[in-house]
Amino acid sequence: MSWFDSHAHPTQAGIGYEILAMRAAGVEGFIAVGTSVSSSEAVVDLVGSVHESFPELTVGAVVGIHPHDAGSATNEDLETLSRIIEDDPVLVRGVGECGLDLFYEYSSREVQEEVFRSQIALAKRFDRTLVVHTRDAWEDTFRIFEEEGVPDRTIMHCFVGGPDEAQRSIAMGAYLSFSGIVTFKNAENVRQAFLATPLDRILVETDAPYLAPVPLRGRPNSIGNVAVTGSFLAELSGLNRLDFARHTWQNTIDAFQLAPKTL
């Protein structure tokens, strides 16, 4: 069985443990995601070292500026993201996570929108997958996509909407990535959104070290735990785990245009 974590935030200090936990859980791929210029540079270095040391794993990096950090972003930061993509076009598979967070609103709405629009343009310019963070901001997110256009490959990361938001996301061609939140007792709307999502649009993620799934909730999350969330979703969908793992593996390969692997 091969699971693929479509979104995590590993560090160099913890990657040795992550590799051990992945192998024990049957996880053979992950996407490492940046949230600022410095963390983006770090995940590219990490993915490069993993790719060299563990060629049997399928890995990729996503570089971008999180809405929490939008307020401190500069034009030079966006130019640096461009350079990072140009310097390592094979391992850098996406732009993000970027978007809008109006729950915390650590950066102003206006600045979040500006930085989000800039990263949509960056994804289009380099033909990279856009990884979207949206919290309490669905209408604004859809409005911006209507105005800017949707990149060819777009992922709604850590999907926490309901069936209506799922249908609107699917209609614009997006993938929906489900995290451990879908296992939480109060997440029935997310489970209904999952059941409304076509199988070829579903990804599974950990968002590690955050959002550990039940029964591990409250502990630091690990990339290996994508197998826990994936198994939960397989049962919810009525598919056996092997078939569900194969489908979500291929979806992740397609979403990030990674080199295919025979399972």
Rank of each mutant, 00 (worst) to 15 (best):
M1V: 11
W3Y: 10
D5Q: 08
S6C: 12
H9E: 06
A21E: 13
M22G: 05
A25Y: 04
S36I: 09
V43I: 12
G48W: 01
H51T: 14
E52W: 02
E52C: 08
F54C: 12
V62K: 14
P67I: 09
H68T: 06
H68I: 04
D69L: 15
T80P: 04
R83I: 05
L91D: 07
V92L: 02
G94M: 10
C98S: 15
E110G: 06
E114W: 01
A121R: 15
K124A: 09
T129Q: 03
D136F: 05
A137M: 03
D140Y: 02
F145I: 02
P151I: 11
D152K: 15
I155D: 09
H157K: 05
F159M: 00
G161M: 07
G173T: 08
A174C: 11
Y175T: 13
Y175S: 13
L176Y: 06
I181V: 15
V182L: 06
T183E: 06
T183W: 05
E188C: 01
P198N: 11
P198M: 09
V204Y: 00
V204N: 04
T206D: 01
D207M: 09
Y210P: 12
P213H: 06
P215A: 01
R217W: 00
G218K: 01
P220C: 01
P220K: 11
V228Q: 06
F232Y: 12
L233V: 12
L236I: 09
L239T: 01
N240R: 03
R241L: 07
R246C: 00
Q250D: 14
Q250L: 13
Q257M: 13
A259S: 14
K261H: 14
